[in-house]
Design a protein around this nucleic acid. Structure first.
Lengths: 249, 249
DNA sequence: CTGTTAATTTATCGGTCGATAAATTTAAAT
DNA sequence: ATTTAAATTTATCGACCGATAAATTAACAG
């Protein structure tokens, strides 16, 4: 637990491109790659391999997928654990968009709109097989970076949501109470579970992700407003009644 | 995928007790056990071992935890996969309480009360380290029984919740629409995620589980009632306002 | 006490794992 | 064309894996 993590330490756009740095061209018959490119390939393929089979997947299978031999891995990473750590960083750190922080706190827009915008973007970033499966595998392994990320979600997203809700509802500002945070976790976990069902259970989910989020936000905001005793404007009731919660009637 | 599963095929109470069947006593110095008892020990210890380390945990470590040698396992199970299948059955099948089905459908009680009662009991049964972790490990592995269980949750719990809600709200009865099911998944997943945070992420959660569920149900029922356009009686607003959502003010 | 059954252990096999060292081959520099 | 540096492969090690066969030993019946 003596490790330090930092969101977006390396932006995805800063990663070496396919034919970067040493002037290599993207020829498919190329036998030798630049160190940066080979390293990148290892990390990328390792991410998808570990996402499918877990971190116990073999280094020989990884090499086979790259069309190289297994010992080559050890010219780029001192050990398999070091490779895993690189995969962690790629998954956990490089997908967070700095603008999300501002997005949730932008009080010039109603909170309903901010939440929809944020969760649309956030789930676009994390609802894919690699991300969700690596996330759960690393959680089950007890990886430090997983616990760190959970705390980031709580402080950067959930605390924010409660604070912004209280502000828009005209409630006095204060550090969110544990039960309030727990309600934010209910929303967040409920939305997250959509991704779990889709990518872990391979179960059919409501096709229109945006609608699922929209309905979730309606229920959440209407629900807490009556629990907290103060209403917050959501979508107009007239529109909602007209199209119904599933947009099918 | 040609397997058939059946809930509660063997009730937990029917499992052989420590000193059952062959008249063995629970002496701690006992070297040889009855086959039924030894088999039971293997399954039990395998459940907790696999829950901690995943199904790649070694058979030698399992034997060591039981104080026996590794080849003994193969007198009781033809292969490690057969042992894993037994663990699956124990976790997935034997914890479902038949009365839960009736509980949700008992129209002599208000739905708020039924839901609270059900989720209190259901989470008592599944919110423990072994269950949740085996559940996720098997899901990540793509086990057939996991997909089967997800479909059971949808038909026996979520469909029921929507149907019962619509009935109590005076809405016309019909097969729940996909978006309605998705809202039930939001509630269910949100509650489930409480267990994930506690047992997978080892993250602190609101201590009083019942309060977390109660608040979740308040938000859900109030929320969908305004989304669906019809109110359903939850806890009295006076009480809610008096104690607040966290019971701390 | 003796004999028999079966629960358990000892010994071991072939395969795979992560990792290291040395030989080889490619690509660029001269 | 020759040299040189390094990307890659070949060969291999010791540890661990699931599984099998044979030897051992504990428990019970007579």
């Amino acid at each position: 637990m003596d490790e330090e993590f930092k969101l977006n330490s390396i932006a995805a756009a800063d990663l070496p491109t396919v034919d970067a740095l040493t002037g290599h061209e993207a020829s498919s018959k190329q036998r030798r790659l630049s160190p940066a490119q080979r390293r990148e390939d290892f990390i990328r393929k390792a991410t998808s391999l570990f996402a499918e089979e877990g971190f116990d997947a073999g280094t020989r299978e990884l090499a086979r997928k790259l069309g190289v031999t297994q010992p080559l891995l050890y010219r780029y990473f001192p050990s398999k654990d070091d490779l895993i750590r690189e995969v962690y960083k790629r998954v956990y750190l490089d997908r967070w968009q700095p603008e999300w922080d501002d997005m949730l706190g932008d009080r010039t827009r109603p909170i309903r709109e901010r939440l929809q915008h944020f969760y649309d973007a956030y789930t676009d970033a994390i609802f894919n097989r690699d991300w969700i499966r690596i996330y759960l595998f690393s959680g089950l392994k007890g990886a430090a970076i997983n616990k760190w990320y959970v705390s980031i979600v709580e402080t950067r997203i959930l605390t924010r949501i409660i604070e912004e809700y209280r502000h828009e509802a005209g409630l006095p500002a204060h550090e969110p109470a544990p039960a309030e945070l727990e309600l934010a976790w209910l929303l967040h976990g409920g939305i997250f579970y959509y991704g779990v069902r889709k990518h872990i259970y391979d179960s059919p989910v409501l096709e229109q992700k945006n609608r699922a989020i929209s309905n979730a936000l309606d229920v959440f905001l209407e629900g807490i407003s009556s629990v907290f005793g103060t209403a917050v404007k959501t979508r107009s009731t007239a529109i909602r009644k007209a199209q119904g919660p599933d947009g099918q009637e």
